[in-house]
Design a protein around this nucleic acid. Sequence first.
DNA 1: CTCCGTGCAAATACTTTGCAAAGCG
DNA 2: CGCTTTGCAAAGTATTTGCACGGAG
Lengths: 125, 125
Amino acid sequence: MKNYSKQREAILTVLSQTDTHPTANWIYEQVREIIPNISLGTVYRNLSQLSQDGDILSINVGDGFEHFDYDTSPHAHLHCKKCGCIHDARLENDPLAKVAKKTGFTPETTIYVAYGICQNCNTNN
Amino acid sequence: MKNYSKQREAILTVLSQTDTHPTANWIYEQVREIIPNISLGTVYRNLSQLSQDGDILSINVGDGFEHFDYDTSPHAHLHCKKCGCIHDARLENDPLAKVAKKTGFTPETTIYVAYGICQNCNTNN
DNA sequence: CTCCGTGCAAATACTTTGCAAAGCG
DNA sequence: CGCTTTGCAAAGTATTTGCACGGAG
């Protein structure tokens, strides 16, 4: 198979089994439990290619880390300024799709991010 | 006035007079035409504080640069993978606002980014 | 005199890249 | 065997930070 490798397989497996939106480094540490001598560079290389191919989503919330998401369907990301968590929120449709097309723009991927305070941080303060 | 400075004033002026979504470095170069000996660190410090205060928008499209926007109203950003441009698209309402609240999340800022090919690159290829 | 923002430059840290070795077909 | 991917480590680079200085009131 094209682009197949044990490493890439393991990265996808790890990514598909988490609800969080991990960083490259987090993924690296998880994958090392499967392939102990995998290198961080390899993780970066694969994540970069996977997101370019549209197989995974790259999300940048501005916290200095690139986050990745196995779920490539259009959905919103709620990023808490306090605890830094990122939660998903389902979207009925893809609001940007139509707006973009109206301006002659051909969208391939859409990323929605809301910044604010999550439910947990709201109640615990 | 609190937090006032010639430097911050100049940064806001530059930012308010462009349609683009400039990077810190671009702003730095522009502001230097007003204040020749301003330092890059100062530009970063001010931009960071302004976006924290909600006076400007920080947009991260994943190209390795932080982009800034004087327009803080909810609107979409169309980012072309080919030429790297970022265009605005007006939004009727703020689709995320309601969805977020439904999950107990208190949104303060919402960022919409669509990745794809812009009209220019579409027709010129 | 006191405080806060600045300028300068060094430091930080995420991510990328070069290259030789290893793996798949 | 040829081509792709890996591991390792070094390099690259956007951004942050420490500290002494200077301006505003």
